[in-house]
């Protein structure tokens, strides 16, 4: 029904869909705050949230309110920001590189960001002057540069970009493993392993503030380039012939992508497949025009990631799976499907 609405109806229905997605997002966030090792009734959850926002001042169990607001709300909103950001990155990369399989994880950018973050964390590189997010950002940029270099510019064939990404991911994963195995003690290794697979544990409000503002800012910038991204449909030369200043546009958008990826990796770790699968789902629902596709990807990505987080906490009783495991369990089959359906260039 959603597909029917999206394809046929004019702008009022599309706004309605966007509104529905927002309401659904609010719903799953509240659900996420209520579900957990200690189940908290929805009414208490809601009251805790309004208390936390400072709208109300209801008398509540301090522990319950603390769990909902300090722990679960920040976690749910971080999941939403992360899903939105990664989906945005995937949409941008798929358009710029004209490749259905492009996304931060597949292209090794997440791996690069992990290496950067781990290097700063364990080796103390930068003498404390650069923090983990900065390390992740530099790692993401390095991975980006490597992929573009290996693929000899985006003019090359679509397979080469992906092969270059695979090579970059291998290289950076090896570097990360090297750093971790030589410099971390057993306790550190375990927590880093967990974080590398994607973990929303330990997320606090300042992290959410950072991630959300980066995603919102990045999203607004990308939205200004929506038409420009459409013009890339037939390649960079075709975009240039349509009046797009290709080199600066590519630089700006790749930087935004690297920045968002780096922020997410430094807080949540490398979460795969969200950036790959969500843009395809959004395109399937709303079509290829980026003015609609970008907001749709962001909303679907946010919803998906909060739901994935809920799943990661309830699949195995008394245990929290890394979020990256859950997204990969859904993402890998979807990846295979896309690979199978991807048309050879004609």
């Amino acid at each position: 029904m959603i597909e029917w609405l999206a394809a046929r109806a004019g702008w009022p229905a599309r706004w309605l869909l966007a509104l529905l997605a927002l309401i659904m997002l609010a719903g799953v966030v509240i659900l996420a705050a209520s579900i957990g090792e200690m189940p908290i009734p929805l009414s208490v959850t809601l009251a805790s949230i309004t208390n936390g926002l400072g709208i109300t001042d209801l008398p509540l169990d301090r522990i319950q309110q603390g769990i909902v607001w300090q722990y679960r709300m920040s976690r749910a909103l971080m999941a939403a920001s992360c899903g939105a950001g990664l989906a945005l990155c995937g949409t941008i990369l798929q358009a710029l590189l004209r490749n259905a399989l492009a996304e931060p994880y597949v292209l090794g950018i997440s791996a690069g960001a992990s290496t950067g973050a781990v290097t700063v964390l364990l080796l103390g590189l930068g003498g404390g002057l650069i923090g983990m997010p900065m390390g992740a950002f530099l790692g993401a940029l390095a991975a980006f540069a490597l992929v573009i270099l290996l693929a000899a510019g985006a003019r090359s064939s679509t397979t080469r970009v992906i092969l270059a990404g695979v090579a970059a991911a291998q290289l950076f994963n090896a570097l990360t493993a090297w750093v971790v195995s030589t410099s971390a003690n057993a306790e550190q290794s375990r927590s880093i392993m967990f974080w590398l697979l994607g973990s929303l544990g330990g997320v606090r409000w300042p992290d959410v503030g950072l991630a959300a503002s980066i995603v919102i800012l990045g999203g607004l910038i990308c939205l200004c380039f929506a038409r420009t991204l459409d013009a890339f449909a037939f390649g960079e030369d075709a975009a240039a012939a349509l009046g797009v200043a290709v080199a600066p546009v590519r630089l700006i958008l790749l930087t935004v992508t690297a920045l968002i990826t780096a922020t997410m990796v430094s807080i949540v770790g490398a979460v795969g497949f969200v950036g790959l699968v969500i843009p395809h789902a959004a395109r399937f629902l709303i079509g290829p025009g980026h003015l609609r596709l970008l907001p749709a990807s962001v909303l679907i990505g946010a919803n998906f990631m909060v739901l994935a987080d809920i799943l990661s906490r309830i699949i195995v009783p008394q245990q929290v799976l890394p979020i990256g495991v859950v997204t990969a369990l859904f993402g890998a089959p979807a990846f295979a499907l896309i690979l199978y359906r991807a048309r050879p260039s004609t």
Binding site: A231, F234, L242, G243, A342
Partner: peptide, 24 residues
Amino acid sequence: ATTEADLCVEEVVQLGRTPHRGPL
């Protein structure tokens, strides 16, 4: 000309208006 995007005829032709339109 090749594309990966699932565009329809109208959407391809609309691209021609790109140089005449501002970003928003």
